[in-house]
């Protein structure tokens, strides 16, 4: 059973009287443990597809099923709760809470899930260790490099034990070396812990590491290929 299933997704944005078709009948299935890149030129609909899969936006038509839940039918509050417990997010601009330390940023998600303090402590430390930041735990984002911040963001995304992680252009703000390092970490987490990653990207380094590449153009899937890494 696929972890994510989209059926005939259509998204139309209205800009005054002009209609923009961001997605045109996208149907896609993603299995648990995949390391998938959604690629395509700017305006192809990558981000829109990720937003809809992540429950941040509603489709104009079509259905998104995560596990056995049709999220298209959830209310705003149900969606917020669903996101908290099922989806991890990594953003292009890291988007950490600047007034919290790396560890507190990771713990924050678990705090919203009302996890016990001891579990939060243990998991935050383990995750930061997994992304190579065990010695940076008490630093605040402004004291860290962009790469380090993005690794904290990956740890934060995993903190809630999500079904999958959505990463929107995660390497766009990073230099090549840092980007490769981040990809290595995510690939290891995928391989060793079976965490499902879905990226939107047009960074060739990410595309090269992905095991499945879904290409979008003008809101339509034009290719969907598997590759050996």
């Amino acid at each position: 059973m696929p972890i994510i299933k989209t059926q005939n997704l259509t998204k139309i944005y209205k800009d005054h009287s002009v209609e923009v078709h961001a997605l045109n009948g996208v149907s896609l299935e993603i299995e648990k443990g995949e390391f998938t890149a959604i690629v395509g030129p700017s305006g192809s609909g990558k981000t829109t597809l990720l937003n809809i899969i992540g429950g941040l936006d509603n489709p104009t038509e079509g259905q998104v099923t995560i596990g056995d839940v049709d999220i298209s039918n959830l209310s705003d509050n149900q969606l917020i709760d669903f996101r908290l417990h099922n989806i991890g997010f990594v953003f292009q601009a890291y988007n950490l809470i600047p007034v919290l330390s790396a560890k507190e940023n990771v713990e924050f998600i678990m705090l919203m899930q009302n996890r016990p303090k001891a579990e939060m402590d243990e998991r935050a430390e383990a995750l930061l260790k997994a992304v190579g930041l065990e010695d940076q735990m008490h630093k605040r984002p402004r004291e860290m490099s962009g790469g380090q911040q993005q690794r904290v963001a990956v740890a934060r995304a995993l903190a809630s034990k999500p079904k999958f992680v959505l990463a929107d252009e995660p390497t766009a703000n990073l230099d090549s070396k840092t980007a490769l390092n981040l990809l290595d970490i995510m690939a290891t987490l995928n391989k060793e812990e079976g965490i499902t990653f879905i990226f939107s990207t047009h960074d060739q380094k990410v595309i090269d590491r992905a095991r499945r590449i879904v290409t979008l153009e003008d809101g339509v899937i034009v290719s969907d290929v598997q590759q050996d890494v």
């Binding site: 997010f89 601009a93 988007n95 809470i97 998600i109 919203m112």
Partner: peptide, 16 residues
């Protein structure tokens, strides 16, 4: 705005 967007995205409810 971006920070609030992130908080909403990751599941912080409206009351919080």
């Amino acid at each position: 705005t971006r920070e609030l967007g992130m908080l909403m995205s990751v599941g912080m409810n409206k009351m919080k």
